[in-house]
Amino acid sequence: MTNEILTISNFNVNYGSKKILDNINLSFKKNTINCIIGSSGCGKTTLLKSINNSIVFESELHVDGNICYDGKNISDIDDSTLRKEIAMLMQMPVVFPFSLYKNLEYVLDYYLKIDKTRKNDMIVDILKKVQLYEEVKDDLNISAEKLSGGQKQRLCLARALLTEPKIILLDEPCSALDVYNTMCIENLLLSLKHESTIIIVTHNIQEAKRINDRIIFMKDGKVVEDNENFFENMSTEEARAFINVN
């Protein structure tokens, strides 16, 4: 019980009469990498957005069911606090219109009151952690918009890590990146799992194979298979069919 950080029970999401998520029941153990796979439209992104309650940004959806984070129902937790502890990274990295340095300083200034030298140290540390420091150390004041896609994504990851999240949600973070950057991010996730729980939506089967501790295969809004040894021992027909095609 205490090993579970997130539990989703009887969770449904409807858009009008269309069922986007159908009776989802899942629980997540601490410090694991959980990969959600499935074809487009199966509800993976909606599931992710439900966890940090960012589906409220889309007002037309009707939500029903329970999500428990750290023992508490997320509807009882203030959104701001929830999102501080559950970080989300999206497919297209969105950097703020500031310098790279300020993108990170911005988050620190919001949450902490610390002096400039400590701030600076924290920023350098986090950049080193996401393997970005060496590439940008000569000019931390470069506008973040001038960075490459891979660098931006790592910056977004660094930004999210500054809030010390216990769960990190990622929605196809590498789909717009090249092989080098993808490997970078994957390695980062492998090391980050020791501090946080990772839930990643991906359509890259090889990637899922590389990093997962557990695979959740979804189809038409339902969880079809939930397996810690997925690639060795698939149990459902649909999963096999999906892997064959992909």
Binding site: N52, S80, E85, A87, Y106, Y110, C156, R159, A160
Partner: peptide
């Protein structure tokens, strides 16, 4: 463009409005 990312970091939307969107 920016508000989803701002909120996903747990940052209050008026704070984000004042510090990012207004200046821009």
């Amino acid at each position: 463009k920016y508000m989803i990312s701002i909120k996903n970091l747990g940052i209050d939307e008026w704070y984000g409005m004042t510090t990012i969107i207004l200046p821009k």
